[in-house]
Design a protein around this nucleic acid. Structure first.
Length: 498
RNA sequence: GCUCCCAUCGUCUAGCGGUUAGGACGGCACCCUUUCAAGGUGCAGACAGGGGUUCGAUUCCCCUUGGGAGCACCA
């Protein structure tokens, strides 16, 4: 138990689309870090690239967090003491910071055109030299630069100190050293007046009193730049936590193809928020021998310094299994509600709505331990709602013991129909007892007999428990379907016993 | 090409100088069983390689190899 002061952490997505699981995992960890220490979690929208902005993203991002049950203390929708929480509304702050650096000659105006920069990079590639800005505009006298700056388009670049080494600390990795010569003069203010990520980060995180910057480790190479920037601005550096990325199952980058889906898509696919939260959290983090963690348990034991450093592979099988665990542990009433919603959406249009809730509640316990996601529900129980279940083709019956034995199958089904018909009261337990007795009487294995009946009544070889299902379907319908199947099989021509 | 990061079963991980290297998913076998599940039991399966440091390295250091990331007026 490490004693930790309350932290202030943030999730700072750019509104360029739905957050995918790798991205949201970092948010989960930051959120847990905040909740574990009794600190604050806030959201800041990083929309400094107008061209990449996607309409509706902010809403989708917030909806994603809400679905996962991650609540925030300050953010674009609810405001807070350090707002605004949208970077495009904070341009004055970035401008002021850039001006300060300019005045202190820690930054300079650069008038190189994109074409010139392209040419420079081409030259560097040709000469096998590392790419990077070479400082053409660094030595323009400040007065002249300011003068030109009033008329000409330009960017502002940070003047990286020449020589020396910059050391920056990552909470998980310790000090990271980089020679300043390997750093080029990066842009901090774009020609359109918007800041780059670097400047926005160095301005906003201190302004918002952020104690720990949790972000993807693709930022690690930029860490020294940020350290330099913070120093130049006279801001104390935050504690950095760079989190590893998630890999696709085959290895390599996680793409839409391999589960880099957005969290909202997982909701669609029938996954539960708690299961996704649990899964994402434990891919890249572990706590002793535990695997299944409730939300409360995660808040209790999650320590951000225990994050794993190696990139994790997204294990879809494990997510699916974990979702099944949550489904099974859920109170039946809660599950029934979710199943009802699924069925309302997925059952064929010709099924009468609203659905009979009593039926849903009867069916739910039958399938609770048979589903791994809510998407498994409908195919498993739809026959309960189908008034017309067509008799399946003969092949569905004539498997295993009954291969080539349509007459025998028909005979057993007919006998079953009579037994089902005579069962009173028509309850699963009674039915089972009678059918077992029938199997003994006819000298067939119960499994063989029950399979015939199962296929006749449900149209499937795999179903929820047979007698409970039959009770739900109803006596008359069961008898009709079994008789229909027997009649159909009686028509099948016997194979020539050649 | 340059810079940085990472390295325990197939996968996610525990381990933080001395362990029969533990757990989970997945796989296999058996049990239970009306199908399918669920559940139970068991089995197979890892410290990338080489140097050091140390009485002793999975653990600390270096190199190699292998992965990954970055090198934009994107974040």
């Amino acid at each position: 138990m490490t004693s930790q002061r309350p932290v202030r952490v943030r999730y700072a997505p750019s509104p360029t689309g739905d957050p995918h699981v790798g991205n949201i995992r970092t948010a989960i960890w930051a959120w847990l870090h905040a909740r574990h220490t009794g600190g604050q979690f806030l959201i800041r929208i990083e929309d400094t690239d107008q061209s990449r902005k996607v309409e509706g993203s902010v809403e989708r991002i917030l909806a994603s967090l809400e679905w996962l049950g991650l609540d925030w203390d300050e953010g674009p929708d609810i405001g807070g003491p350090y707002g605004p929480y949208v970077q495009s509304e904070r341009l004055d702050l970035y401008r002021a910071a850039a001006d300060r650096l300019l005045a202190g000659r820690q930054a300079y105006r650069c008038f190189c055109t994109p074409e010139e920069l392209d040419a420079m990079r081409a030259r560097q590639r040709e000469q096998k030299r590392p790419p990077g800005y070479e400082g053409r505009c660094r030595n323009i006298p400040p007065e002249e630069a300011a003068d030109r700056g009033a008329r000409e388009p330009h960017v502002v670049r940070f003047a990286v100190p020449e020589g020396g080494v910059t050391v920056a600390e990552d909470l998980l990795r310790g000090p990271i050293e980089v020679a300043n010569d390997t750093l080029d003069d990066f842009v901090i203010l774009k020609s359109d007046g918007f800041p780059t990520y670097h400047l926005a980060h160095a301005v906003d995180d201190p302004a918002m009193q952020i104690t720990h910057v949790t972000r993807g480790d693709e930022w690690l190479p930029s860490l020294p730049r940020h350290a330099l920037l913070f120093d130049a601005l006279g801001e104390p550096r935050p504690i950095y936590v760079h989190t590893p990325i998630i890999l696709a199952p085959g290895g390599g980058k996680l793409s839409k193809r391999h589960g880099a889906k957005s969290v909202l898509e997982y909701a669609e696919d029938g996954f539960l928020p708690d299961a996704v939260l649990n899964f994402l959290c434990i891919t890249g983090w572990g706590y002793g021998d535990e695997t299944v963690f409730s939300r409360e348990r995660l808040i209790e034991v999650f320590e951000i310094e225990n994050l794993s450093l190696n990139p994790a592979t997204f294990d879809m099988d494990k997510l699916t299994w974990l979702n099944g665990v949550y489904l099974r542990e859920m109170p039946v009433e809660t599950l029934a509600e979710m199943i009802a919603q699924r069925l309302e959406r997925e059952l064929p249009a010709d099924v009468y709505r609203p659905l009979d809730r009593g039926l849903v509640e009867e069916a739910t316990p039958l399938i609770q331990e048979r589903i791994q996601t809510l998407a498994d529900v409908t195919p498993l129980v739809d026959f309960f709602w189908q008034s017309e279940v067509p008799t399946p083709p003969a092949d569905a019956f004539l498997q295993k013991k009954f291969r080539g034995q349509p007459v025998e199958a028909a005979r057993l089904l007919t006998a079953s129909a009579r037994t089902v018909e005579a069962t009173d009261p028509f309850e699963a337990a009674v039915l089972e007892e009678r059918m077992r007795a029938l199997a003994a009487e006819l000298d067939v294995k119960v499994g063989d007999l029950f399979t015939l009946v199962r296929v006749a009544v449900t149209g499937r070889r795999v179903t929820p428990p047979l007698f409970e299902s039959m009770e739900i379907v109803g006596q008359g319908v069961c008898v009709d379907r079994i008789d229909a199947a027997a009649a159909m099989l009686a028509e099948v021509p016997q194979p020539e016993p050649s």
